[in-house]
Design a protein around this nucleic acid. Structure first.
Length: 1229
RNA sequence: GCCCGGAUGGCGGAAUUGGUAGACGCACGGGACUCAAAAUCCCGCGGCCGCAAGGUCAUGAGAGUUCGAUUCUCUCUUCGGGCACCA
């Protein structure tokens, strides 16, 4: 007998897979696909880590099983090779990163192949390969062209000693990772990707996909949506606090992404007013706002430069800013602040409240200003306590759950104190403690009520009310009256003056006895009251123990028209009120920030843009065309005109004729008559003005430079009702071929809320002019109602001087440089290559300079799964037909004609005008994506979010067939070292997969890694455990000698020619044909379990089932080859080399990889007998084996008849007998 | 502080529509084979009482619901992960 020798069979099998192209994948239009994805590795110099083996083996197991189940499996691999370690290595050694990367990839490839993964190596990608990053650059340009990539001043981490910018992960405890110098913040212009515009969509998309809950939760957390309101507080300036000649600077300068759609307070009517705008998630507490707190950073912004202030306040601001710049640690700092002397008016009640500058309000969150409600916000409370600021309670905590049919009965409650003892009442009848309390009698004031109740329930007559303890709302059960109650209780602190008493006057159901106890006891006893809970809260308040800061939902009080409303109701009502008064609005805020997309590094994709001073300075003639029922003074147009003129352009903004009863043709003629259109003209048309713009383009003969169409109709269909005057203003027929020719560039902007123009019409327009519609959140609905400025329109209309490289100039390759360090100024090493930087402008042909920043490491991985679908394509990032095949839910089977058309369309997309074939994709076409994506938890936030963002954007551009990239996402737990610590070179506890393969074999390593513990949990490595698994594989191998000829299932497997080693013939007799013995049952149960467990990633229990089956087979005298083959097939996904070897040893002449997965027979999986458990009072007293078809009566009879049970019953009659089918009989005595 | 997820023998871990707790593997002990060792095979293996049959306690701690709880509810302890002055 030949011993199991993985060292011999594994390389042999790997070679065969490679030579036979076993796992190369092609699109098979008549076969259902399965796209299995693992995160591609970063090829570090350290080589493959066992940590890689866990997720890769898991998906390999799943992929191999799916192949056997008849799916066309795409299981690709590649290398995410841009990154810091290689770059730092290059800086240290001077070796080109590309060279080092190539070497590392060779090592990784060898190691991955040695583990026997069934990757399609022909599809391997390398993000640093210019053939790959050509498309990364191309995709980035789509973002740029859609206005989603912009430049912005952003602070970066700067090491003053090394003179380089640091990534966040290179900053350790505020210091440079390599030299330990304290890191500074420096401002640098950076490219940004506007991921915040997709915040809603990224959140909503989570409903369409199947992600493990933690991944979903983390994504939601990171996006951090909070709903609330923006509220404007007018500053009430005292005379002399403001110099009348002072120019008031603009207030709202936050980027639009952070403050989407805040109506600006700077309408001309309010020019003499300053306002502070706050964001709050609790607008319902506005009546409790006792001060405003603003961040030191934004003090000048909110209060105005030059506002009169003391040196003290100025010093505070400076000190705080310095402190915040230096102190980058995450510890919570003590709250500090200073009163400014400025007062603001609470719009809800007209109260004047002070404005404080504080360190606990951050400039980067919300508006940088808050209304402080100390009674209902812990931070405000802490601050107010420190600075002795007043507190106003406006939300009552509701104690107890709401009860059905509750009757309202308000009242008062007393905490009576004598020295340090508290008086509680005990009722024997109901056995509980309470405080003296009662409902108001008609005409009584609360204090009269409590005086009366104290006299009646305690008899004391000499006492004095010393404090008011506030109110509590309670849902209670009034046990004496037997009814549910809902009450507002006012609490009073009462000091007993002497012991004088009168007789008690108790109601019939009351039997109170007074008891003096310590406050601690009182709290304990009162909290145990099952009916009247909540009294203890008054005791706490009496002791000043309760901090009186309640942040939960409750009932509004002291809030004028909100009184009595629940928190959600109060929120809705106050927002409606604020909106009506024009002092606030509903607002959604996100934690998510835009993505900093620049790195001042060498080893990344160059950003394919050039800066052209000439183009930037070029002056254009703008024509702004207003819409229906409007004129040149309406909405954002005057503002836009002013902005453009200030930038040196000329602007024609006419009042069009018959605006209320318009004719598009008439308006077109009017414009043509009154202004000249030429190649330096930029048209901006809003609403019906956009329609006019299109008709204008139909008529002219020389193309204009650009056309910006803002929320315009191309058909008489509206979201907000019929518009007869608009409908008849135009024939609604457009010659788009001509229109397209007559503008060199188009931008289509739409209101993402589709308040006037419906979604499909907007998208259609974008498609027709060849520039996907950009949906934005305008300042006012439809860019008109209440909007005075629309920055997005301005941005779309301007040329900032950044010009994209045309597609034929891509890839823009990384040039060879002398040194890989960033420069002293913090620019990337590319900036030193003056020959490379100097270039010509693709637009005007003049002198221009290249962008020298590179893309972040996340870029290449943000779309790599798409490239796997078509990795060799040099015309497109992937052909549309292949994307559809691999990514759609049900493979869309395209015929040849359709495929070539799809491909052609996509090719046109290559000229940088986006014209994908999915632009009209409706929801029923959105579903799908990678079928199963497994990766590390460390990537669930950034990589997952970034790649979802890219995919959603590409979907909106019509370039990919699904909105979401991944249908299903799972995560593996990390592999810890044998000592339970993280594996690390410095600890010296790293397990090298090469060593393990060498000693125990790849199959043993793979199977062990799957067996070591639950897949989603962290598990410590154990070499002993690996040895145990190797022993299991040995046993499976040795079973081969046990196999006898002839099997019931051999006929079903035609690839077998001959079975049976001949030396066994005649030794063992073939197993009975009855096929319902124990082994058969176990076999079918095992097929079921392994099948289900692999699908559920319960690999450990699948393997344990295989071990049990193996043990059982080993015990048999002989095993049929049919049974043995099933074992081998079930084990094959885990141990593929062994599987193949045994398979061919059994006589197969083809690979096992595509053999059909075993199916179980439910009838045979069911045991003939089961062991019936008999319990007495829940304790197992007997168990015996009975037939599976035993009836309930029979089972009970058998149970009661058992000798052991009889002994326990001791002649007693059972009270109850419980029967659980095929499980147990439980006897209660 | 907030949000998630855990806690079961000496170890990794099984077991959920509530129904025999400890499957499977490791480690350990005993035995067979062997001149011997390795390998392999067989047996045992949570604590306590008991020669045994059996009993009894036991799933982080405490309470509760139930004939019956690792599983459901509440409180607490503790470990891991994420976020963190997010208004």
């Amino acid at each position: 007998m030949k011993k199991y020798n993985p060292k011999e069979i594994e390389p042999k099998r790997q070679k065969a897979w490679e030579e036979d192209k076993t796992f190369l994948t092609t699109e098979k239009m008549n076969q259902e696909k399965f796209f299995a994805l693992v995160e591609f590795p970063y090829p570090s110099g350290a080589g493959l880590h066992v940590g890689h083996a866990r997720p890769y083996t898991a998906m390999d197991v799943i992929a191999r099983k799916k192949r056997m189940e008849g799916r066309n499996v795409l299981f690709p691999i590649g290398f995410d090779a841009f990154g810091l370690p290689t770059e730092n290595y290059a800086i240290k050694t001077g070796r080109p990163p590309a060279e080092v990367t190539a070497e590392n990839i060779v090592t990784f490839t060898r190691q991955l192949k040695a583990l026997g993964f069934s990757f399609d190596w022909s599809r391997a990608v390398d993000t640093t390969d210019p053939k790959y990053y050509k498309w990364t650059q191309w995709l980035f340009l789509q973002f740029f062209k859609q206005g989603l990539a912009y430049k912005k001043n952003q602070p970066i981490n700067w090491c003053p000693k090394d003179k380089i910018g640091l990534a966040n992960e290179e900053v350790v405890a505020g210091c440079c990772e390599r030299c330990g110098t304290a890191v500074e913040k420096r401002n640098k212009e950076q490219w940004m990707l506007a991921i915040t515009k997709y915040a809603d969509s990224l959140l909503a998309g989570l409903n369409e996909v199947d992600y493990i809950p933690q991944a979903r939760a983390q994504q939601e957390n990171w996006i951090g949506r909070s709903e609330g309101a923006l509220i404007r507080f007018v500053i009430a300036r005292r005379a002399g606090s403001h110099r009348p000649d002072e120019a008031i600077p603009p207030l709202t300068e936050l980027p639009p992404t952070e403050l989407q759609g805040i109506a600006s307070p700077r309408s001309s009517a309010r020019n003499d007013m300053r306002e502070i705008e706050v964001f709050t998630t609790r607008p319902d507490t506005i009546f409790g706002a006792t001060f405003l707190a603003i961040s030191a950073e934004l003090a000048n912004k909110w209060l105005g430069i030059g506002w009169q202030t003391s040196a003290e306040v100025q010093k505070y601001i400076t000190d705080t800013l310095v402190e915040q710049a230096v102190n980058t640690t995450r510890e919570e700092k003590e709250k500090t602040g200073i009163a400014t002397g400025v007062k603001a008016i609470n719009p809800a009640n007209g109260e004047e409240i002070p404005v404080w500058i504080t360190n606990y309000v951050l400039g980067t969150v919300g508006t940088g200003a808050i209304m402080a409600v100390p009674a209902h916000d812990e931070r405000d409370w802490e601050f107010a306590k420190k600075y002795n600021l007043p507190l106003k309670e406006v939300v009552l905590k509701i104690i107890g759950r709401p009860l059905p049919n509750a009757i309202r009965r308000d009242g008062a409650c007393a905490v009576i104190m004598k020295g340090n003892k508290v008086l509680v009442l005990y009722t024997k009848k109901f056995d509980f403690f309470s405080l003296p309390s009662g409902g108001y009698n008609p005409g009584e004031t609360p204090t009269e009520t409590i005086r009366r109740e104290i006299r009646e329930e305690t008899g004391y007559i000499n006492f004095k009310i010393t404090d008011y303890l506030g109110e509590l709302e309670k849902n209670v059960f009034a046990v004496g009256r037997n009814e549910n109650r809902y009450r507002l209780h006012k609490g009073y602190l009462v000091q007993l003056l002497d012991e004088e008493k009168v007789p008690l006057q108790l109601d019939g159901y009351e039997d109170y006895v007074s008891e003096w106890v310590t406050p601690e006891e009182a709290i304990k006893k009162l909290s145990e009251n099952p009916y009247k809970y909540g009294d203890e809260e008054f005791v706490r308040r009496a002791l000043n123990e309760s901090d009186r800061c309640f942040t939960g939902d409750g009932t509004a009080v002291n809030s004028d028209f909100l009184d009595g409303l629940s928190t959600p109701e109060a929120k809705a009502k106050i927002i409606a009120w604020l909106e009506e008064k024009g002092v606030g609005k509903r607002q959604v805020n996100y934690k998510l920030r835009d993505w900093v997309f620049s790195r001042q590094r060498y080893w990344g994709e160059p950003i394919p843009l050039v800066f052209c001073e000439n183009c930037r300075n070029h002056k254009y003639n703008y024509v702004i065309i207003h819409g229906f029922g409007s004129d040149s003074t309406q909405g954002f147009k005057p503002w836009l005109k002013k902005e453009l003129e200030e930038a040196g352009h000329s602007v024609f903004l006419p009042n069009l004729p018959n605006t209320n009863n318009p004719s598009v043709d008439e308006q077109v003629d009017y414009i043509l008559k009154n202004t000249q259109l030429n190649e330096d003209t930029i048209l901006i048309g809003h609403s019906l003005g956009g329609t006019v713009l299109l008709k204008l383009l139909e008529k002219i003969s020389t193309p204009v430079a650009k056309a910006v169409i803002v929320d315009a109709p191309i058909a008489p269909r509206y979201s907000d009702g019929d518009r007869p005057d608009v409908n008849k203003s135009c024939d609604w027929n457009f010659d788009f071929a001509k229109i397209k020719k007559n503008s060199r560039e188009f931008v289509v902007l739409g209101d993402k809320n589709f308040s006037v123009i419906p979604e499909n019409q907007l998208r259609e327009l974008g498609q027709l002019v060849g520039s996907p519609t950009r949906l934005v959140q305008p300042e006012g609905a439809h860019f008109s109602r209440g909007s005075t400025r629309e920055p997005e329109v301005l941005q779309a209309a301007l040329f900032a001087g950044w010009i994209p490289l045309p597609a034929e100039q891509l890839p823009l390759e990384l040039p060879q440089v002398q040194k890989y360090e960033p420069t002293d100024t913090g620019e990337s090493p590319l900036a030193t290559m003056s020959e490379w930087v100097k270039t010509t402008c693709p637009k005007c042909g003049g002198a221009a300079r290249r962008e020298t920043d590179t893309m972040p490491n996340w870029a290449g991985s943000s779309w790599y799964w798409l490239r796997y679908c078509d990795p060799k394509n040099d015309q497109e990032f992937a052909s549309q037909g292949k994307l559809v095949y691999w990514l759609k839910n049900k493979s869309v089977i395209l015929n040849e004609a359709e495929r070539s058309e799809e491909s052609l369309k996509a090719k046109q997309g290559n000229d940088l005008s986006v014209k994908g074939s999915f632009a009209n994709a409706k929801d029923d076409r959105c579903g799908g994506g990678v079928d199963w994506y497994n990766g590390g938890m460390e990537h669930t936030v950034l990589h997952l979010l970034y790649s979802r963002f890219w995919n959603q954007f590409l979907f909106d551009c019509g370039l990919v067939p699904t909105r979401e990239p991944y249908k299903k996402r799972t995560s593996h737990g990390i592999v810890l070292a044998e000592d339970g610590e993280k594996m690390s070179k410095s600890r010296g506890n790293v397990i090298n997969p090469d060593d393990m393969v060498d000693k125990y074999g790849a199959d043993a390593l793979r199977t062990y890694i799957m067996f070591m513990g639950p897949f989603d949990q962290a598990v410590a490595w154990s070499t002993n455990g690996l040895v145990g698994v190797r022993r299991f594989l040995d046993r499976v191998w040795n079973l081969k000698e046990h196999v006898i000829a002839r099997s019931y299932s051999d006929e079903a497997t035609p690839s077998f020619k001959e079975l049976i080693p001949s030396e066994h013939e005649g030794i063992a007799s073939p197993r009975s044909s009855a096929r319902n013995d124990k082994l058969t049952t176990l076999l079918h149960q095992t097929i079921k379990k392994v099948t289900e467990d692999i699908d559920g990633m319960r690999f450990n229990t699948a393997i344990s089932a295989l071990m049990q089956l193996t043990n059982e087979m080993t015990k048999q005298e002989a095993v049929t080859s049919g049974d043995y083959k099933i074992l081998i097939q079930l084990l094959y996904p885990f141990a593929p080399h062994l599987g193949e070897e045994v398979w061919s040893a059994l006589g197969a002449n083809v690979t096992i990889a595509y053999e059909p997965w075993p199916q179980y027979d439910p009838a045979l999986a069911k045991a003939e007998e089961f062991s019936l458990v008999v319990q007495i009072n829940g304790k197992v007293r007997d168990t015996f084996s009975v037939s599976s078809d035993t009836s309930e009566d029979e089972a009970k009879r058998l149970a009661l008849g058992s000798e052991k049970i009889q002994k326990w019953l001791e002649g007693k009659e059972p009270k109850k007998i419980i029967y659980v089918k095929n499980k147990l009989v439980s006897i209660v005595i």
